[in-house]
Write a protein that binds this DNA or RNA. Structure first.
Length: 788
DNA sequence: GCAAGCCCAGATAGT
DNA sequence: CTGGGCTTGC
């Protein structure tokens, strides 16, 4: 035992030592890291090092337990030990660190008892990698995954308690839609009013609030919601019969599993001694309850989030979760991280100014010690083609001058559709690029088909996938037969596969029974293969024995070759999965595929410009960021301008977009844009206007004539020269009249508009003008136009 | 049962 | 403009 004086000295020195070990962190970050026991809410602004905090915190828990705040002194500490620590502090010697760490650690947490929830699989993987670099092997044993992956793992073990089989399938949005489409069809209701999309989105909202079909059925007077609640019941029954769950079920069912099964709940509550959640602002109520269950025994929970970056309200995320957190966990330590380490002062100031227009926020202002940096470049182009050419020019200029690499650039957009013009321009300019979309590869027909075969082998009750492949390639099982089987299955309350298996017993199936039996035997044979062979051999057999391979080889369509290549790619993916997984299995593979997103594929090391939606860019950073399509009705989306809350969500999205940039930010817009094959003209986005003008450098394409109202814009001559050169061919002819393409004019009945095209016709000119009411064609001599 | 061809709706974001 | 869904004719 130490004497009183040494005890005091030890406590002081111990914490000094710990601070030295984490000296790269600022005091607030350290506070978050050292606070081991109890609950902790970290409100962390963009670029304030919140992932760093999570990683350091996990490392701290594993290495030092609650050594910082715990004032108990281990019996074995001697005076010499205290002196050793003092010696280290006066003269840090790396060799002593391990020894002292061993001495002062207190209740270190086993990595198996820590669960870290991240937003994407990619983020989970990165967290593990960084942890490995930090603390070695032990880092690999921490559970790091998304909500969905974590819950699927739990459900694989225990879902039988809820009446599902453990081989359950996971339905993606498209699968769910297909189920709902059938239901709506047979329910004979107004299919205009009740589209699968609308119905499913309502159901999703309920599920995110943990409302089962039993909870909502009969609860609504409103005919619309009443109908949807009835559809919900049928939908849920269909899924169960198919032994399938949708994305929302994954969370909801896990919560129900915990509610109804004390042993399961206790098992996980004992396991999860420490729970950490990243991107907490984007969790929904169901996820909140899940966290509550996870952490309910030890109440050691740390959540990290930023209310200004909440961009998934449309998916049920609720800021209430942050407010409830402080209520639910008494004595929560709230830590705010407001120092930004990522962006220049100009970029940060622009982002702060924009987000300041939101009324519903907790309120914080990020600051940075980084340099002032360049002004934000705001560029207006003629159309989306020129907008994309502009990006290419800027990128090529900076790359050829040696200033930047391709991988330093990101192009962010509000909607996926905007990527098309970017892609075209990059191909033309020879810029290496990678576009990150929702699923892309796994969305291709041939891939979905092959995966559908594997799904049916894994779970023959999966009606949706079964219907997909039962006649692909053609084996003379047509629509009439499929419908018949489905009707039988529905009335018998069993799966379609079951009807097919017993088809001999049904009078009406006699004519087609040989085909059905052939199909059944094929699936049975594959199931047999699955028990005896590797996944990749199974895949090869399925590909050839179903006749799919033959179908593609004999297909004369030029796209067939590409589809064969895609199958090859899928095969390599499977081989890769087999070699990396500890216990590869068909069901685990299918599970990984269904929870996989394209962003998981993003490789920051690859030297290519990356294009993705702003939602996809959450959590990432790039030296140079282009946000394109800065136009009203596009960003903010026309769907959101009517509602204050949705508009604020759009503004947060702008905030997220701007704060991705480390040193340069470009905001571009097109004065006219082709959408749906129609030209539309939108004013500049308010998210550009809200940036103070002293932070911006505005320029526009020379092809847009400089009328008086735009006289104060500077023109970036280098860019304009090249942009003009590269697209001269598409320039519309102008002639002796005063009007020019791109000019704004006013019309007696249509109001103010912009000239989109001019075509000479005899002595007159046919002009296409975009007015607020839509695009109109007028003859110059007849329309009473005025220049403005 | 199947392929070709026509028609019309459609694109906010994504686990 | 595109592509999914439905009709039509074989």
């Amino acid at each position: 035992m130490l004497n009183a004086k040494y005890q005091e000295k030890y406590l002081k020195l111990k914490n000094k030592f710990l601070k030295l070990q984490f000296s790269k962190l600022n005091p607030m970050q350290q506070k978050a890291v050292f606070n081991s026991e109890g609950s902790c809410l970290v409100l962390a602004g963009a670029g304030s090092g919140k992932t760093t905090v999570i990683i350091n915190k996990i490392a701290f828990l594993i290495k030092y337990g609650d050594a910082y705040y715990n004032e108990e002194i281990p019996n074995y500490i001697t005076e010499q030990d205290v002196d050793l620590i003092e010696e280290y502090i006066n003269n840090p010697d790396e060799d002593l660190v391990e020894k002292i760490s061993e001495l002062i650690k207190y209740n270190p947490v086993s990595p198996y008892n820590i669960i870290a929830i991240t937003f994407t699989n990619k983020a989970a993987e990165e967290l593990k990698n960084r942890l490995y670099n930090f603390i070695g092997e032990k880092g690999n044993d921490v559970i790091a995954s998304t909500f969905h992956s974590a819950c699927v793992k739990i459900l694989r073990r225990y879902i039988d308690r809820l009446g599902y089989e453990r081989s359950f399938a996971i339905y993606d949005t498209e699968d769910s839609k297909s189920v709902m489409k059938d239901i709506i069809k047979s329910a004979e209701i107004d299919s205009q009013l009740f589209t699968p999309k609308i119905v499913l989105s309502e159901i999703s909202k309920w599920k995110n609030q943990l409302l089962s079909h039993k909870d909502v059925e009969g609860k609504y007077e409103d005919i619309r919601l009443k109908t949807i609640s009835e559809l919900y019941t049928i939908y849920q029954e269909r899924l169960k019969k198919a032994n399938a769950v949708d994305f929302d079920d994954i969370i909801m069912l896990t919560v129900r599993l915990f509610e109804e099964n004390d042993d399961v709940r206790e098992f996980y509550q004992n396991k999860f001694k420490y729970v950490l959640v990243d991107e907490y602002q984007d969790t929904n109520y169901a996820q909140y309850m899940l966290c509550k269950f996870f952490a309910d025994k030890y109440k050691n929970i740390c959540v990290v989030g930023d209310d200004d970056q909440s961009i998934y309200k449309f998916r049920g995320a609720t800021i209430e979760n942050i407010l409830n957190f402080e209520k639910n966990y008494k004595d929560t330590q709230v830590i705010r991280l407001e120092q930004n380490y990522r962006s220049t002062k100009n970029i940060l100031s622009a982002a702060n100014n924009v987000i300041d227009n939101n009324r519903m926020r907790k309120g914080k202002t990020l600051w940075t010690e980084n340099e002032l940096g360049e002004k934000i470049t705001v560029f207006e182009s003629l159309d989306q083609t020129e907008e994309a050419m502009y990006l290419s020019q800027v990128i090529q200029n900076m790359v050829s001058s040696g200033e930047r690499n391709y991988k330093d650039f990101a192009v962010l957009y509000r909607t996926n559709a905007q990527s098309a013009s970017v892609e075209t321009a990059f191909v033309k300019s020879g810029i290496p690029y990678r576009l990150i979309g929702a699923h892309k590869f796994y969305d291709r027909k041939e891939i979905k088909d092959m995966l559908a075969y594997l799904s049916v082998i894994n779970n023959p009750h999966d009606d949706v996938r079964l219907k997909r492949i039962i006649n692909e390639p053609k084996r003379s099982i047509g629509k009439a037969t499929i419908d018949l089987v489905e009707i039988l299955a529905n009335s018998l309350e069993c799966s379609m596969y079951q009807v097919i298996s017993e088809c001999e017993e049904y009078e009406i199936l006699q004519k087609v029974k040989t085909k059905l039996i052939d199909f059944r035997d094929m699936i049975e044979r594959f199931s047999e293969y699955n028990r005896g062979m590797s996944l990749s051999s199974l895949f090869t057999s399925v590909y050839s024995e179903t006749g799919y391979e033959k179908m593609l080889i004999t297909d004369k369509d030029p796209s067939a070759k590409e589809r064969i290549e895609n199958i090859g790619q899928l095969h390599s993916n499977i081989v890769e999965y087999e070699s990396s997984a500890q216990t590869p299995s068909l069901s685990e593979y299918l599970e990984e595929v269904s929870l996989f997103t394209d962003i998981d594929n993003f490789d920051a090391g690859e030297n290519a410009v990356v294009g993705m939606t702003i939602h996809g860019a959450k959590g990432l950073e790039f030296p140079v960021v282009f946000v394109i399509g800065m136009e009203e009705n596009l960003f903010p989306s026309s769907m959101s301008v009517l509602s204050e809350t949705e508009l604020e969500e759009e503004r947060r999205l702008a905030y997220v977009a701007y704060t991705r940039a480390k040193s340069q930010l470009y905001l571009t817009r097109a004065s006219q844009r082709l959408m749906f094959g129609k030209t539309s003209v939108n004013p500049v986005s308010r998210f550009v206007t809200e940036i103070p003008s002293d932070l911006k450098h505005e320029c526009r394409s020379k092809r847009l004539s400089t009328s008086s109202s735009f006289g104060n814009f500077e023109i970036d001559s280098k860019i304009n020269e090249q942009a003009t050169k590269s697209s001269l061919s598409s320039q519309t002819t102008t002639n002796k009249t005063d009007y020019k393409v791109g000019e704004r004019v006013s019309h007696a009945t249509f109001g103010e508009g912009m000239i989109i095209s001019m075509t000479p016709m005899g002595n007159d000119i046919l002009m296409e003008i975009a007015f607020p009411v839509g695009t109109k064609k007028v003859m110059a001599n007849f329309a009473k136009l005025k220049k403005i």
